[in-house]
Simulated scan of single mutants.
Amino acid sequence: MSLQVYLNGQFVDKEQATVSVYDHGLLYGDGIFEGIRVYNGRVFMLAEHVERLYESALAIRLQIPISPDEMTAAVEETVARNGLKQGYVRLVVTRGAGTLGLDIRRTSNPQIIIIADTITLYPEELYENGLEIITASTIRNHPVALSPRIKSLNYLNNILAKIEATDAGCLEALMLNHRGEVAECTGDNIFIVKRGVLKTPTTDAGILEGVTRNVVMELARKANVPVVECTLDRHDIYTADECFLTGTAAEVIPVVKLDGRPIGDGQPGPVTRDLRERFQTFANGD
């Protein structure tokens, strides 16, 4: 049976889930989205994701035609209809169809799309052995030009950096901000461990404030691991004892090399392994 996609209040086969070619989400990347995990049939941190979605909408003056409570119910029903126990939800809201111009006053009927499917971002062996990443020459967008706190459909900046990673034989790339500081990777937030202290870039480094990032920081604090949000540069990554990435799709994955340089002893470290285990326990409700 075909996957059922929620499209503006209706459920349709994924092959029939279409939007207008005049939709500004397609023409200009004018829309927002959230990626959300499902564990044991439970949508993980759904309230936080829905809150961020509506904040992104407010920031770009996009009026979502249903309430947050209705959106929450729609996500849960989409997961249930597809019998998804372990998987991923992509929640998308576009500006809607308009003209071949930029004026949002000439658009109408924002599109709400909810997809529930499976996802595998990285091979399982990399969670045990760690990722090798590079530093991309493509930097993060200047935060004054476009706030990184808006999770918009315009991901070209990240895609260009991802191309650099794949060209180099890697699956992920570190992105710096306009000041040359560490920001985040193409789809994940980054953490390091140095002398037992967990460090991650601040939100003003030009990062998306990840839901998984916040969960991991809280789990670390509960485990009595000091957590510091601070400015980092590549030297801090090169000389770290451990490094790992967090994200909805990635979950918690170790990084063992940056730009060909081993991080720590070149193996996933004890803090990384412990936090990954704590995250899995928390996410699966064990």
Rank of each mutant, 00 (worst) to 15 (best):
L3G: 02
D13L: 11
D13R: 12
K14N: 03
K14D: 05
S20W: 13
H24N: 11
L27H: 04
G29H: 04
F33I: 06
V43W: 04
H49C: 03
V50I: 15
E51D: 12
Y54Q: 08
P68Q: 07
E77N: 13
K85Q: 14
K85L: 12
Q86W: 08
G87V: 09
T94N: 07
D103L: 14
R105S: 14
I112K: 01
I115A: 09
T120R: 15
P123F: 03
E124Q: 05
L126P: 05
T138H: 10
V144I: 04
L156G: 02
I159T: 15
L160E: 03
K162Q: 14
A168S: 14
A173R: 11
M175L: 13
R179W: 03
V182F: 14
G187P: 08
L198K: 09
P201T: 11
I207L: 13
L208G: 02
G210A: 03
T212I: 09
V216A: 01
M217C: 02
L219H: 13
R221C: 00
P226F: 08
H235V: 00
I237A: 02
F244H: 14
D259E: 15
G260E: 09
G264P: 08
D265E: 05
G269I: 08
T272E: 06
Q280N: 12
A283I: 11
